[in-house]
Amino acid sequence: MQARWLLALAGVLIVGAFVVTRTVDNRYVYFAAYGILQYVLLATAWNILGGYTGYVNFGTGAFFALGAYTSVFLIQAVQAPLVVLIVAGGLVSGLLGFGIGYLTLRLRGVFFSIATLALAVVLETMMVNWEYVGGAKGISIIRPSAGPLFTNYVQLLFVVMAALAMGAVAVAWFIEHSRIGRGFATIRDNEEAAECMGVPTLRLKLLATTVSGCLMGIAGAPFPYYITFVEPVSAFNLSYAVNSLAMPMVGGTTSWVGPIIGAVLLGTLQQLATVTISSELNLLIVGVVLVAFVVLAPEGILGLLRRGTRRTRA
């Protein structure tokens, strides 16, 4: 029942996004909104692995960039349409996620995290040395025409990203409310006990890393058209890893709502800072907010809300 309502809400929001493009003409609005929605997608993707199973991924940038570079390659090679780019980016990064999943056999806790960080460094080095997709100096991407429905391509990207983010949230919602999600939670709480209570932990961890990686790749797939110039430093930017981790932590990692709250909050804050001061402050802001939450409200905003309602009820 609740699922049907949420699905309806998602539909309304996507149509709403489309309607907005008929009425608002300011290009910056779409550019900024795309950025925030991209973070909703990334934070949700991160949380499926990090929040639900407890495996902290520091390599969001690798999965994101792999999606972006898959697009660059396909644009260069065959001028593939956006839908194909999104599917391909998801597949390639999902495959990488599957590989990373096997690391969980041997690496737990901080060692897993370090491995994901190393992965990002390795992939970035590979892209720096791959001339076909621009190498170190980068590559310009020319946007296709926006088609009859939109006045410019950024508007189209905005609607596409709204749909993708919604899709990711739907995936997270489904996992959370299914047997799979409860299995994920046992892994987060105690992996050995989970095994002994019949949870096939490896299979579930592989599922989590694959789905999470796939969604991150999907987030990166439209990126070349979004910024129109792809180079390794921006595609592998540390801010993807930091934000996609900070946003769920600030919002609350145990529910699908948490990453959305965190992404909207921190995303908006950073957009404001970029406009009013400078984008160089962004990571500092995220860092300060994250530390404040880890110390003062380790269960994030959702945790605070829950505590609040419990107190008023009591």
Binding site: A185, T186, D189, E192, A193, C196
Partner: peptide
């Protein structure tokens, strides 16, 4: 089996 040192699924 049970665990000698309890290992509940602590957040549940």
């Amino acid at each position: 089996r049970t665990f000698q040192i309890p290992r509940p699924f602590g957040t549940m």
